[in-house]
Design a protein around this nucleic acid. Structure first.
Lengths: 153, 153
DNA sequence: CAGTTGTTTTGACTTAATCAAAACAACCCG
DNA sequence: CGGGTTGTTTTGATTAAGTCAAAACAACTG
């Protein structure tokens, strides 16, 4: 970490973000946010494994709990692809969508086709109050198309 | 092509549909399709429970296998809402979307906002070959809004 | 610095789904 | 209409993903 190639938020800013959502600032919480910045689209297990590298005493349940409270607070977004555990990312509020590879499970961000509102507004909301919209494109990534077999990643 | 939109398809038509997809026609398969027509957005467990009412010898694994092969054949659509097991429905190919209640888990169909193509075309496919698109609106259903607590449905 | 409140750990548990191999049934062909 | 092939289903064990409850603990307030 000596070389300053960080396009990422500093720990202090992360703390403010957490506090700003009305949550107490703890080491595991900062670690979870850091992990999600470096590795978006991570599963709870993957986040757990990463967090343990720096905070070896952290439990899996803590990570599940942190991800749940962050999701509730709007700090992270949860995403449930088919045939995969839930994934988490900290890009929120920008109405972006996901490309999911059915071959290897790779998930990639895509910006919204339409722009803003239309993608968040169903034709008939049937009395629902909409909080968020999730758009997922299922397909085959470049590597899986080329090799005919799942890429490892 | 299966229409999938009529509320009551006769068993013989179901059989043709199954056969038309290159799959062998068996009693559990017909039963699974019937259940999905009467109760869309059912989980594998729910389908299993329903199928057992008429075919008591059917195993859970059969149902999982049938749902997987039907999904692969394009006969049914699989849908993974947050905090819920995977759901299945037999409305396919009409680019419709889903309203999912975060309170009680209720899932409801909505027709596409845009119409046709735009919802199926990401702005930049990053080399992916897109097979299908899934649009999910997360919110609170009428009942959950009214009562402030999850409706049992 | 002590108290309150919310967080994390620990450990057992539930649900959802998958795997492998043997028993079985549907469909094709003569 | 009956045998053979192929695909399906059953059986039983196993894994993965996530949840629950209560005690130990740590962050923030005053």
């Amino acid at each position: 970490m000596a070389t300053g190639t960080d396009s990422h938020t500093h720990p202090d800013a992360l703390k403010s973000t957490i506090r700003g959502s009305g949550l107490k600032v703890t080491a595991p919480r900062v670690a979870v946010l850091e992990v999600l910045q470096h590795a978006p689209h991570s599963s709870a297990e993957q986040v757990f494994a990463e967090v343990r590298k720096t905070l070896s005493g952290t439990s899996a349940q803590a990570v599940y709990g942190i991800l749940a409270s962050f999701t509730g607070a709007g700090l992270v977004r949860r995403f449930d692809p088919p045939n995969s555990p839930a994934l988490f990312e900290c890009r929120v509020g920008d109405n972006h969508h996901h490309l999911s590879c059915v071959g290897c499970g790779l998930v990639q961000d895509v910006d919204c086709v339409i722009g803003e509102a239309p993608c968040l507004t169903p034709s008939d909301d049937s009395g629902f109050t909409i909080y968020s919209a999730e758009v997922t494109f299922n397909g085959l990534c470049r590597t899986c198309q080329a090799t005919g077999s799942p890429a490892t990643g």
